[in-house]
Design a binder for these strands. Structure first.
Lengths: 146, 146
DNA sequence: GTTCTAAATGAGAACGATTGTCAATCTCAC
DNA sequence: GTGAGATTGACAATCGTTCTCATTTAGAAC
């Protein structure tokens, strides 16, 4: 039945809605700022869920691929995720307390496109994030760890 | 003995010049584009050096800390290094063949500073890199691995 | 040149994040 | 309700990186 649907979604295998994936999605949505998969996993376990770590990774990967989650590499090399509904944007992150501010940067977007085009690059994506000390941490006067 | 010397150099331990560190520095300088520590290590071994992997990591860490090397996280989470003498700049990297083009971006620099300042952030640093397919790889028409 | 001390090294174990494997479970179209 | 196959969880495997520690070595003092 409805054989033309094949045309609509020929490549993507059917994706089922499972409690686990929903749990991950919600946990992510409830979290401010970026979290690592590991952190999200323990958070879920603390909340009584029995999701496995591998499942959390898979769910986050799926969310990120679908554009429902934002992902970036922390300076330590850990992958961080964040629920993301407002389309493409970048972040201003406090390296002391982790505070994250979403920033949109049209000028940077077009700059990236232009630079890529100038050099003949196609399918350009870009990584633009600003790390610093937020006002509060700056005021603390404490030097950051590093 | 000479107790007042403690006053002269209390914190920085003496740094010795060793063949290994020099070898790493040179290998890095001879390399175009970004290399991973692992790649640099095998390259050194192929060249006959006996440096250990841990030493390569230590040397790269030192170079990066001293500002003599550039470092960034690849999307795969690997740390990449590059000799860097031309001050602050960013990169346009082909995700298929690894070709790297240095790009300077005054507009982005000032934008980052401004955005940080707007939100009260201090000591701002930023990560700005553009990934794409270089002209050649685009022409190949082959879809990238991912 | 010889001696001495602490920095640096190398080998490999340890570590932490992530991915793969696979039998068991659960969703959903029928 | 039933069945096919997507998804799961537990854990092993992998990969990049760091740590440990006995040994070597650079560089200052003699």
């Amino acid at each position: 039945m409805t054989p033309d649907l094949e045309n609509t979604a020929p490549r993507t295998a059917v994706q089922r809605t499972t409690k686990q994936r929903e749990a991950v999605r919600e946990a992510l949505a409830d979290t401010e700022g970026f979290v690592s998969a590991q952190a999200l996993h323990s958070q879920l376990q603390r909340a009584g869920s029995t999701v496995g770590l591998a499942t959390v990774y898979r769910a986050l990967g799926t969310l990120a691929a679908a554009g429902d989650a934002d992902t970036l590499q922390s300076p330590e090399g850990e992958a961080l995720y964040r629920a993301c509904s407002t389309g493409h944007h970048h972040h201003l992150i406090c390296r002391n307390c982790g505070l994250t501010v979403e920033i949109s940067a049209d000028s940077v977007e077009s700059w990236a496109q232009q630079v890529a085009a100038e050099h003949g690059f196609t399918r350009a994506a870009h990584v633009v994030d600003v790390f610093g000390l937020c006002a509060e941490c700056s005021a603390d006067g404490r030097r950051p760890v590093e």
